[in-house]
């Protein structure tokens, strides 16, 4: 565990609290992609199946439980509690285009051709692109509530912070995980446009609006 990794995880935690806070205070999941949230549940369940056979640490254990539980809770809020506030007609990204390639890639590029190993790999590839339905929705509506942009910024920061964490681990622990690194770089890259608008607009006190 190094500082980048810890800050990354805390940023990930913060993003989830921000999202739940947004839904509960505005009593609405407007602007949030249900598909992206459903993909995150898939990612966490596929990756953290190792709770059953790999013990890492108490920290790791509780974080995994938290990420699975909170992502399922968010789906519940969107699907039942605040269902009328979700507009499926603007959340139209075809998730098959993400899940399909993630399945195929994980079958080809993995460390070991074993069920749980492929699930882990699948979860890494799927997480890399899981934000796309959300970004697609943002692109379509051209604007976002400020709190939603804070959620996305915290989520993007989590991924960005994992990069210096890998560099640090390469030098100090000799750990290199090419699958996680390549997928992580792709994932972080997807946020670049968003970050540009976030830094130049939202953090200057303006509303998040894309040029028409």
């Amino acid at each position: 565990m190094n500082l980048f990794r810890l800050l990354g995880d805390l940023s990930h935690l913060a993003s989830i609290f921000i999202l739940i806070h947004k839904i509960q205070t505005t009593r609405s999941c407007r602007g949030i992609s249900f598909q992206t949230q459903a993909l995150y549940v898939t990612v966490f369940v596929a990756r953290y199946i190792d709770l059953f056979f790999r013990w890492i640490s108490l920290y790791n254990f509780f974080m995994k439980i938290f990420f699975i539980a909170s992502s399922v809770y968010i789906l519940y809020l969107m699907k039942y509690r605040y269902r009328p506030t979700h507009d499926p007609s603007i959340d139209t990204f075809k998730v098959e285009y993400l899940v399909g390639p993630a399945v195929v890639l994980s079958l080809i590029f993995n460390y070991k051709f074993e069920f749980t190993e492929i699930l882990w790999t699948f979860s890494i590839y799927l997480e890399a692109v899981a934000i796309l339905p959300q970004l697609f929705m943002l692109q379509r509506t051209g604007e976002a509530e400020t709190i939603t942009t804070h959620y996305l910024a915290a989520l993007g920061a989590y991924r960005a912070l994992y990069i210096p964490n890998w560099i640090y681990r390469y030098f100090t622990e000799d750990v290199v995980d090419p699958i996680a690194i390549v997928a992580g770089l792709v994932q972080t890259g997807l946020y670049l446009d968003f970050f540009y608008v976030y830094f130049t607009k939202v953090l200057q006190g303006q509303k998040f609006e894309l040029p028409a």
């Binding site: 990930h12 790999r54 640490s57 994992y162 964490n165 750990v175 995980d177 996680a180």
Partner: peptide
């Protein structure tokens, strides 16, 4: 062998 990979990451 998991030792050389990042499986301890979240």
């Amino acid at each position: 062998d998991d030792d050389a990979t990042g499986k301890d990451e979240l």
